[in-house]
Nucleic acid binder design. Sequence first.
DNA 1: CGATAAATGCAACAAATGAATCATTTATGT
DNA 2: ACATAAATGATTCATTTGTTGCATTTATCG
Lengths: 295, 295
Amino acid sequence: MPQRDPLREQIIAQYDAMSPQLQQAARYVLEHPDEVALVSMRELARHAAVQPATMTRLAKFLGMQGYDDIREHYVAALRRGSDGFAAKVRQRGDVAPETVNENIAAHMLQGLSAQMTKLCEPDSLQRLKAIAHTLESAGKVYVLGLRSCHSVAWHFHYVMSLLGDRSVHLDGPAGTGGDGLIRATLEDVLFVVSVKPYAVATLELTQLAKDKGLTIVSITDSEVSPLVGMSDQTIFCPTESYSFFHTLTPALAISEVLCTLLAEDDRPKALDALQQADEHFLSLNTYSATIPRRE
Amino acid sequence: MPQRDPLREQIIAQYDAMSPQLQQAARYVLEHPDEVALVSMRELARHAAVQPATMTRLAKFLGMQGYDDIREHYVAALRRGSDGFAAKVRQRGDVAPETVNENIAAHMLQGLSAQMTKLCEPDSLQRLKAIAHTLESAGKVYVLGLRSCHSVAWHFHYVMSLLGDRSVHLDGPAGTGGDGLIRATLEDVLFVVSVKPYAVATLELTQLAKDKGLTIVSITDSEVSPLVGMSDQTIFCPTESYSFFHTLTPALAISEVLCTLLAEDDRPKALDALQQADEHFLSLNTYSATIPRRE
DNA sequence: CGATAAATGCAACAAATGAATCATTTATGT
DNA sequence: ACATAAATGATTCATTTGTTGCATTTATCG
């Protein structure tokens, strides 16, 4: 990974100008960047066979205010290596509010970008695949997502309804949301979306579906979410954001991926269903015919 | 194969037996394992919104001698992780025998990640800021998004409704969606979301609002979207995806950013409103407060 | 060699950390 | 409803941390 490391380059550049002790310290830092982030200065000094003060002096020599600047740099580097996002969220309290406000939009978006990348990890991909398979072989798919999760649930249902008639959205006026389950059978699947704080109604309906013998598939935000225990399969979506709101963007992304996997599984059938939908909308004049010219 | 993590599994296993505060601490640890290794206990506690002592108590609860045992574990894990990084990169090389489905999912997610990053460009950020300002100084904010864009519109409205009572969702059964505009005034703003193919109803309602003198702010997918000509301000969301569906994830992200900017603009007021909402939900038992325990 | 300055080691310091204690609040059971 | 226990918050304490000032050593140059 050709990751630029300005501090490392600076140390190398100034290495020849250092005193022997400083060189020894610098050399240890170069060769054990992780240690800098993970242990205290005194311990690092011990491992480098150098006086604690030398580390401080190294920092000053490099034009920094103190040793903490060095560590902070390597902590940031380590974070980037393993997880690029969590770091930034936490800095919020420490940074001047004005600065954050200016950049808050960019920070949020970059965080989301990192979260999308994180969802590419093998574990997530495997779960996606498995859940897609479950949904494929299901009878009806009941879709449940209340309050903030409504957006995800509805979008999933909407796309599914374009692909066929297997999807039932458990939502409705006058508290009739759960009625869809009345005729649910063992072959059916409940697709439920919920993140903290978990709506009581969601948990209750899910429990009901489970009692009726449905397979439960869920999108939720944590291993310790109450949904995990009720679900046959779960996929986790990060929800952290710079704002004091949770983000549902990753959850929506997951939902879209699932829809795509389902459609791809039987591509001809999906195309056919979409064609049908197109004709339907055309005859209803649902969509604007004056579509922006392309090409 | 994902790394085995005994401590993580232990925390998950004992999670249900923990007190609420312990759960909160444990949850933060689960979700931010790197932080445990990289910051002090007090800082971790601060980020987890928990008392420092709670972290010590968590350690004791897990049968350890002190918090340092927890950290030591995560330090070791991080060390292994960064060492094993080269291995991960190597894995990427022989990705050949993967199934098609996994590739689609990964491609989609990586594409989304890139799109989020693209939204950080100065032009987008400036538009976001400007739109946020318009929404701030608006009277009512009417929110319109039909069909696939319903998810974005509804989510925006939902968050806005937590923050105050200025948001009106132009949606409703029996074709009453547009009725909300009946008493709209010149100070009000229409916030409309639409991507290709553009729903006729959306365009018609938007035109009506424009005729009534409302300010029109839109999220749409192209410079040549029909919404651009009707709108005072527009922000563009990419919708391209590797699947044959459009993606609404970037649009949702934009919506969330806008909500955050609005809330941040008057942070105390936002916090106050959220507090009110919390109390409301508490008295209604909307959310599962203490997660159901099983022994 | 001897005088000067740089480099190094040592010790003491304030600030922070993690842990322990106690008072108060909240939940539980009869 | 009350009594009891559990959970939580606040306070305090002994350590450890990073830093600094000073004494000592080492290198440099006339």
